[in-house]
């Protein structure tokens, strides 16, 4: 398997190799990209099974588009982030068709019971709950910026908006997050000292 030979090859080159029949190139691309595709989907959806379905669907779209991929266009990662964002938005809309916003937004009961053992996991879960209360676009921008650690220009390409709009979405998202988390500070076990 020529994984070592391809180790330094850019994603776009691997995709071109796959388009020319090299399946190993696609496998290497899969190992490189699936973790971040899955993470992005999971952070947007908060459901592992659904995130795996989205990751598979996004990667399938990549395999199919390989022969038409133009090397001078977008980066593969940017394209994939956009695909995942769109797939997640579709699923979130469908969910909201079945549930009221209040149902989605309500944090799980029982968070107070872990007040004394505030750990990283609890913070992460609290963040996930809070993110689920944001409008989709704000949530997407905040996740890409602060969890996937992408630059604002890259997020702008993914979301197909200007950099100013991204900054605006992130700022509003963070204000909303801070406000949601502040309401839960007692549950989350923060003290005054």
């Amino acid at each position: 398997m020529p994984f070592d030979a391809y180790a330094d090859a850019p994603d776009e080159a691997l995709l071109a190799l796959y388009a020319n029949g090299d399946r190993d190139a696609a496998r290497l691309l899969m190992h490189r990209l699936t973790p971040r595709v899955f993470r992005q989907a999971f952070r947007m959806l908060g459901d592992k099974a659904e995130a795996e379905d989205v990751a598979q669907e996004a990667m399938l779209k990549l395999w199919k588009i390989a022969p038409e991929w133009r090397q001078d266009e977008a980066k593969v990662t940017t394209w994939l982030y956009r695909i995942v964002a769109n797939l997640c938005t579709d699923r979130l809309r469908k969910r909201r068709g079945n549930k009221s916003i209040d149902e989605v937004a309500e944090p799980e009961d029982g968070a107070a019971s872990v007040a004394d053992q505030m750990q990283q996991k609890t913070r992460s879960d609290a963040l996930s709950d809070a993110l689920n209360q944001l409008p989709d676009r704000q949530k997407q921008a905040v996740v890409l910026r602060h969890l996937d650690e992408l630059s604002n220009p890259e997020i702008a390409k993914i979301m197909d908006v200007g950099v100013g709009a991204v900054e605006n979405l992130i700022a509003r998202g963070k204000r909303a997050l801070a406000s949601v988390l502040a309401k839960r500070k007692n549950e989350l076990g923060y003290s005054d000292d």
Partner: peptide, 24 residues
């Protein structure tokens, strides 16, 4: 919170990789 979120990266199942290889 962001730092906790970044560290709390979920793991996907091995089955996902098998499904993707089948698609390839």
């Amino acid at each position: 919170f962001f730092e906790a979120g970044r560290k709390d990266a979920p793991e996907f199942s091995a089955a996902l990789m098998s499904r993707i290889i089948d698609d390839i």
